[in-house]
Design a protein around this nucleic acid. Sequence first.
DNA 1: ACCACAGTGGACCGGGCGGTCCAGAAAGCC
DNA 2: GGCTTTCTGGACCGCCCGGTCCACTGTGGT
Lengths: 193, 193
Amino acid sequence: MGLTAKGRATRQRIIEGAAAYLRSDGPAGVTLDDIRAITGTSKGQIFHYFPDGKEELFLAVARHEAGRVLDDQQPHLGALTSWAAWDRWRDSVVARYRTQGRNCPLGALMSQVGSTPGAAEVISTLLNRWQFHVREGIEEMQEAGLVRPGVDPEKTAAAFIAGIQGGVQVLRSSGSSTHLEASLDTLLDYLKA
Amino acid sequence: MGLTAKGRATRQRIIEGAAAYLRSDGPAGVTLDDIRAITGTSKGQIFHYFPDGKEELFLAVARHEAGRVLDDQQPHLGALTSWAAWDRWRDSVVARYRTQGRNCPLGALMSQVGSTPGAAEVISTLLNRWQFHVREGIEEMQEAGLVRPGVDPEKTAAAFIAGIQGGVQVLRSSGSSTHLEASLDTLLDYLKA
DNA sequence: ACCACAGTGGACCGGGCGGTCCAGAAAGCC
DNA sequence: GGCTTTCTGGACCGCCCGGTCCACTGTGGT
């Protein structure tokens, strides 16, 4: 029922090993056997720690990766209180996805786990949090009088999220970050206008 | 070597049957057997018309679907010469993807065929054509003096493409079209400013 | 009428992979 | 030190699914 310290360590090793594997290359299909080999574990252990098998494991990895997405944008994302901060944030997003290149851990995960309710929940939680920070940033800029009042913070934040998502998607299939940058720059222009 | 009329008809039936199936529901995995059953054909025929098997067939279906994407936005997309036309275009995009809902034929296809060069080419061709039309529209509006000269047509068109892609992706996983609409509306605001 | 080749059906194969099972090795607990 | 519970290893199973093969049936050309 409960997990010992050793058990927790192993469980964590599996998750992080799988995450690292996903980040390294983008093999269309990741199998439990791959993960087993990479983490130096056995089938028995995988099903011991993730009784519901593949889906449960992948969801755990997805949650782990979802955390990284926002962490990688900190501290900029949490304090969008000046144009300089916005620019730094923009750069960190572009840099992050440019180094990630064609390998999108979350995307790979999602395309395998399919559209289960659990997967949708992980994605929507991430996107909500992300959008929340952007919206906060816009509101603060408005309060400081740096963004004209006509801008709808919620809607514009949603546009940012969509633009980033789409930009990353194009980056994944074409290898070029132009769309991601164009999207961010255009929306920043819109805010600054 | 050559195909008779009957042969061409069967080949087409396979492609269109598969496309219709993809459009109807979004079964994470589409198998050759599914397609065989739905199109009322046999394994022999599938491999007769698509010797390279699954990948060749899926790519053919993807090309077929990619054509539809732009067709569905016509005639609006081809003549973005007034604000009314832009608004109609916006509405047609939103309507199209709202009815499509969570089932993205192209997305499903791509997640299965993986990141082969062929798949990348289909996507980038589609996106290029799409972006071309948007850019043309912006340029025409600029020439007519309806959009301020400061706007970079290429970059803004790229932002539109990214925004739409991202909006559709959010729609696919959340079922809501708010992000797609927010993205289009914000960018339209940007143009009109 | 014949023949070559396109079209069709479906049995069959083999590998991959998620999942099961159980036996044995640690590790807590009294 | 014994007992229970957790942890670990890996053999094994069974299905799914892409792909092969071959025999049969049109069909069109001369």
